[in-house]
Amino acid sequence: MSSWQLIIQQQIVKPLQTREGTFSLLASLGVWVLFLYYPIRKSAEALADPHSPVEGILTTLGLENLANWVLPELGAYWALALYVLPPFAILVAADQMISERLRGGLRFLLLRAKREEIFFGRFTGQLIIQLLLIIATIFSATLMGVLRSGDSGFFLHHIHTLLIAGVQLFIVVMPFIALMSLLSVLLNKVRTATIVAMLLFAFGESLFRWLGTKVPGLDYLALLVPGNQLSQMLNNLPMDSWALLAYPIAQTLVFMIAGYLLFRRQSV
C-alpha cells in the first residue's frame, strides 16, 4: 500500500481512534436521527397533505419547487442538507494537520511521505467521509419516504434522481473541505480555523458585497465564499442545478492550489 493510500486510510479511521472523535460521530448520528424524525418527517407529511397550507407558503417564499420532488421526504432532505452538510464538513475537516503539526507528528510523517501525498491524501480522506455521510443520509431519508408511501419500487425507478442529488451535494461540500485544508496550513488552532470558516460561510458574501461599496473590486471576493450558490440551488431540482456547480468546483481548485503552495513552503 502506497504512502498516499495509507494517509487516506488514516484520515478516514482517525475519528474512531480517539474518545473525542467517537463521541463526535455518535453525537452527529443522534443529531441526524432528530433531523430525520422531526424536520424531514414533519415537513414531508405536510407536503403530502393536499389540505396543508405548506405548498402555498412555499410559493409565497419562492420555494415552490420543493413540493415537486418525487418524494416529499427528498424535498425536505434537499433543503436541509444544503445548509446542514457544509457546517458539518467544516467541523469534521477542521483538523487535517493543525494538531499533528503542533505535536511534531507532521515532521515525522514527512520523513516517510511527500508533502503532496500528505496534503492531498488528507483532503481525499475527508472527501470520502463526506461521501459516506451523504450516501447514508440520503438513503435514510428515501427509506422513510418509501415506508410512508409504500412504493417498494422507488429505488429502482428513481435511482437516477438519488444519484444526481447525491453527486450535487458532494460537490457542494467540496470547497468547505478544501477551505479547511487551506486553513489547516495557515492557522495553528483548530477552534480558530473552525470559527473563521463558519463566519465566512454565514457572513462572508454579505461582508465582501459591503466592502465592494467602499473599495471597488472587493465585491468580487464574494465569489470565493463557499456556499454562495446555495440559495439558488434551494428552489431548484437537482437536474436544474448543474450550471450552479461551477462555483464550488472553482472554489475547491483555488483553495487547494493556494493551500498546497503554502504547505510546500511551510516549515514544520
Rank of each mutant, 00 (worst) to 15 (best):
M1A: 13
I8D: 05
L16D: 07
R19G: 14
R19E: 13
A27M: 15
G30D: 10
L36E: 05
R41M: 09
S43E: 12
A44T: 06
E45N: 11
V54M: 15
E55P: 00
G56A: 13
I57N: 01
T60L: 15
L61T: 09
L61I: 10
L66C: 10
A67W: 02
A67F: 02
L74R: 07
G75K: 01
A76S: 12
A81E: 01
L85V: 07
P87H: 11
I90C: 01
V92A: 08
A93Y: 03
A94C: 10
A94N: 08
M97K: 04
I98D: 03
G104L: 08
G105H: 07
G105N: 12
L106R: 02
F108W: 12
L109S: 09
L110D: 02
R112S: 13
F123A: 04
F123N: 00
L131T: 13
I134D: 00
I135W: 08
F139S: 13
A141V: 05
L143D: 00
L143F: 11
L147Y: 09
L147S: 09
G150H: 10
H157V: 03
I159P: 00
L163D: 11
G166P: 07
Q168T: 08
Q168H: 01
I171E: 03
P175Y: 06
F176I: 04
L183W: 08
S184W: 01
V185C: 04
L187A: 03
L187Q: 02
N188L: 11
K189S: 15
V190H: 00
R191N: 12
T192L: 13
I195N: 02
I195T: 07
M198Q: 04
L200K: 03
L200S: 04
F201Q: 05
A202I: 13
A202H: 02
F208W: 12
G212L: 06
P216L: 10
G217V: 10
D219F: 09
L223M: 12
V225K: 05
P226S: 12
P226D: 05
Q229R: 14
L230I: 15
Q232M: 11
L234Y: 01
N236G: 06
L237V: 10
L237P: 00
D240V: 03
W242R: 08
A246E: 08
P248T: 07
A250F: 15
Q251V: 10
Q251G: 03
L253F: 14
M256C: 06
Y260P: 06
L262P: 00
Q266R: 14
